[in-house]
Computed example of a mutant assay.
Amino acid sequence: MRVYVPATLDEIPGPLTARTAHAVTPALRSALPDEDDETVEFVAQLTAADDALDLLRARPDAPRLRVVVSVDVPDASVAAVTDDGAPPSAVRLVVDVAATDVACAHVDEPEARPDVVAALAGDGEARERLEERDLLWYDASELGAIPR
């Protein structure tokens, strides 16, 4: 199963500890019945990027860029999230994820740092700008080369 894990730059290449992540779940497919697979996957990834901001808020020492790590894990490594307020893509990674399970990472470009900092301080316009930004794609073999 492909899972989109919110993370911070200092956590990659891994391992990543068990946490809430996002995936294409039956609930997400049900919420987006007219969308193709690529769009549904993108929504799960974007929701993980939103959660990456929450991680950054809790970790003031981490580099101020959003990170989403795409991992491939057995279905048994993921549990459903049953919280009423959880997004339909939410899942719980119930095991730590090894660096060898990382397929790729999606990271803000360094120029996004001021908007990340402003969004963390409560600037709604900065958060909207972040939502409009594309995350840069890095293959698992390139994780050490991500600008920090």
Rank of each mutant, 00 (worst) to 15 (best):
E142I: 07
V97T: 06
V81D: 15
R2Q: 01
G14M: 08
L136D: 01
L53N: 05
T82D: 07
L135Q: 15
E132V: 00
E35M: 10
D50C: 08
A90R: 14
A90Y: 12
E41W: 09
R19K: 02
A18P: 09
H106E: 04
G122D: 13
F42A: 13
P6Y: 08
L55V: 14
T20C: 07
L53C: 04
A7C: 00
V40K: 01
S30E: 14
Q45V: 05
V81F: 08
P6A: 02
H22I: 04
L16H: 03
V68C: 03
V91S: 07
P87K: 11
R92Q: 15
P114F: 12
E125A: 12
T20V: 14
Q45D: 03
D61N: 12
E11P: 00
A140L: 02
E131Q: 12
A145H: 06
V94K: 04
H106A: 00
V68W: 05
Q45W: 05
E11I: 00
E111F: 06
A86R: 03
Y138H: 03
D101N: 04
A48N: 01
A62V: 08
P74Q: 10
V116A: 01
A145R: 11
A76F: 08
D134V: 03
V3T: 11
P88E: 06
D36E: 15
D108V: 11
D34V: 09
V95N: 10
Y138A: 01
D134F: 08
A145K: 06
H22W: 04
R64I: 13
L28Q: 10
V71H: 01
R2G: 04
T25M: 13
A121K: 04
E125D: 11
T25P: 13
P15R: 00
D50T: 12
L135V: 14
A31I: 00
A112P: 10
A98Q: 08
A145S: 11
A79G: 07
F42T: 11
V24I: 13
T20W: 10
L135T: 02
V107E: 07
I12D: 11
A98V: 01
E131W: 08
A121E: 13
E35A: 14
P6W: 10
T47Q: 09
P63Y: 06
V3H: 14
L93H: 06
D51S: 15
P15S: 04
P6V: 10
V91Y: 02
L93F: 06
D10V: 09
V116Y: 02
S30I: 01
L16V: 07
L136V: 15
T47D: 08
P114W: 10
V107K: 14
H106F: 10
P88T: 15
D51P: 06
R57P: 03
Q45I: 05
A52V: 00
G124H: 12
P114T: 00
P87N: 03
T82E: 08
E38Y: 07
E35I: 01
V3D: 02
A44E: 09
D84I: 07
D123Q: 10
E125C: 02
M1Y: 01
P26Q: 08
S89V: 06
P15C: 01
R64M: 15
V116F: 04
P6Q: 04
A105M: 10
E111T: 09
V95R: 13
S70C: 12
R19F: 00
V43E: 15
P110I: 05
E132S: 15
S141Q: 13
E109R: 12
P15L: 03
T20M: 10
D72C: 02
A99P: 03
A76H: 11
